[in-house]
Design a protein around this nucleic acid. Structure first.
Length: 197
DNA sequence: AATTAGATGTTCT
DNA sequence: GAACATCTAATTA
């Protein structure tokens, strides 16, 4: 069952981030299908969050997608190499987003391996934002702004998780964000191998 | 085992 | 030009 628009619009980013854990992220690109369970995410709270590209209500051509209604994909090219996949949250005009940092491959494992050009199949395949994008085939900005209710990229209902299985810590790689860098907005599934170390 | 360099696009100084 | 929501491979000790 594909998640509907109100899932992305009716809750706060941090709640959506937690709710996304255990769900199934699917892509069907160029006739090739892959899916994986979301095991690690980070919440970015738009205007109020210094770590977010759109903090303070800033708008650029790149961040424009984040201001759309929840349920769209924000694909961001980082360091000129890595494509990160984000889920846009909240209503149109807000710039909240959830970064998917790690998944556990379910279907299309061979395809992911091929895309990553990595011979061994272990947890390093899809643990890390740049790797997730590559494994899922999101390697261009073509998918920036894609509707998650469409048929290229979407999220389905997955494993129900209890609060006990969810762990919250501070986010990674955003030291420049001062006090916001300490916010416990990174969530992952406890006891899962499929999270970045 | 731990640190470093290098790749490289978008945005801001 | 510098910094950045990173990853890999090579080098160091």
């Amino acid at each position: 069952m594909k998640l509907q628009r109100d899932f992305y619009e009716t809750s706060s980013v941090t709640n959506i981030a937690k709710a996304l854990l255990g769900k199934t992220l699917c892509t069907s690109l160029g006739g090739e299908f892959t899916s994986g369970m979301i095991t690690e995410v980070e919440a970015y709270a738009g205007q109020n969050d210094k770590a977010c590209h759109a903090h303070g209500g800033k708008r650029t051509a790149r961040t424009e997608v984040m201001y759309q209604a929840g349920g769209h994909a924000y694909v961001y090219l980082c360091y000129g190499i890595h494509h990160m996949f984000n889920v846009v949250c909240n209503k149109e005009g807000n710039a909240d987003a959830v970064l998917v940092r790690a998944i556990m491959p379910l279907e299309g494992k061979e395809l992911m391996e091929k895309r990553r050009v990595q011979s061994v199949f272990d947890h390093r395949l899809t643990t890390g934002p740049g790797k997730v994008g590559k494994a899922l085939g999101i390697i261009t900005q073509d998918h920036n702004g894609a509707d998650l209710l469409g048929d290229r990229i979407w999220i389905e209902e997955g494993q129900p998780l209890s609060e006990k299985e969810i762990c919250a810590t501070k986010r990674i790689g955003i030291d420049y964000a001062e006090e916001d860098a300490l916010k416990p907005w990174r969530f992952y599934i406890k006891n899962s191998k499929w999270v970045s170390k």
